[in-house]
């Protein structure tokens, strides 16, 4: 029957149209825009981007943030997930509290940490009362790049570890408890159980969490901006500056395309590294 043959396509049509209009079209437009270098030619915008004073430092900052934040987050979330798994009672409540940051926008999260860490913030007040410092101390300006970086890392971890946690908790719950019990019976230590049974069986969840978090981490911006302003330039921040302050949409588009390419490359690397042989799946 013809209707039944066309029905599936008909049913996915609205979603496809939606994606095409709001995702594919702007994407193509951005790519086209980034290659529209005017007199400077096809690669003109990219040359301007590479020649930008802040480009190298923002690229480096972005990578350093991703390489610091994502591994720390993964370890934290795995630890938290395993702790939740062990809890007999109150697991829901703790999970709920731990996921509160999920509901906070990244700008708001940045502002929260700014309030804690700025010159007259909660941290300094606390340290002052302890007698560790004698007055307002700056942690977040360009003269203190180390503490500024650490502050951003802390804020990012606080803000976005919950996403990883939720994925890992869901993954852990899918592993029947008998696997861990079998490992116990046959004499595996807690560490062996983790590395030889739990983590391998958690691989699909770890892969999803890593891809999701890494892609989002390359887009890090609002929290960084709230805490450090332009003292700690990152790629998305530069795109924003080119778009808003310099009113140069084409160079901003080049930044956007670069970020997308980096994200896609990271995803490809993860898919390859964490590939699970199809027959080894549960």
């Amino acid at each position: 029957m013809p209707t039944s043959r066309w029905l599936p396509y008909l049913l996915i049509a609205p979603a496809s149209v939606f994606l095409a209009v709001f995702f594919a079209v702007p994407l193509v437009q951005t790519i086209v825009l980034s290659f529209d270098g005017g007199p400077a030619g096809l690669w003109g915008n990219y040359q301007r981007m590479l020649g930008d004073l802040n480009f190298n430092v923002s690229l480096r900052n972005t990578f350093m943030l991703v390489l610091t934040v994502v591994p720390l987050q993964m370890m934290l979330a795995i630890g938290m997930g395993l702790m939740l798994q062990k809890m007999q009672r109150g697991r829901e409540v703790v999970l709920w509290i731990w996921t509160i940051p999920l509901g906070v926008s990244d700008l708001a999260a940045g502002l929260v940490w700014l309030a804690i860490l700025q010159n007259t913030g909660y941290l300094n007040t606390f340290l002052f009362h302890l007698g560790v410092i004698d007055g307002p101390t700056a942690w977040l300006n360009s003269e203190t790049p180390m503490t500024l970086f650490i502050a951003v890392v802390v804020a990012e971890i606080w803000r976005s570890t919950a996403v990883v946690l939720v994925i890992i908790v869901a993954g852990l719950q899918l592993i029947p408890k008998e696997f861990g019990e079998a490992a116990d019976i046959f004499g595996a230590s807690a560490w062996q159980k983790l590395t030889r049974v739990t983590l391998p069986m958690l691989k699909p969840s770890l892969q999803s969490a890593l891809i999701l978090r890494t892609v989002l981490a390359f887009e890090v911006f609002a929290a960084v901006y709230a805490i450090g302003g332009r003292n700690i330039p990152v790629l998305v921040g530069e795109a924003y500056v080119w778009q808003r302050e310099n009113q140069n949409y084409s160079v901003a588009a080049a930044y956007a395309v670069l970020i997308m390419v980096i994200s896609l490359a990271a995803t490809a690397v993860y898919l390859r590294l964490l590939r699970q042989k199809p027959e080894a799946q549960a």
């Binding site: 008998e178 696997f179 079998a182 019976i185 004499g187 595996a188 049974v197 069986m201 799946q281 549960a282």
Partner: peptide, 19 residues
Amino acid sequence: PPAQRGLAMVFQNYAVFPH
């Protein structure tokens, strides 16, 4: 703990490691 009891077990639902 189970490991120190010196026994082996076959589980009703096998619990054979898929990976």
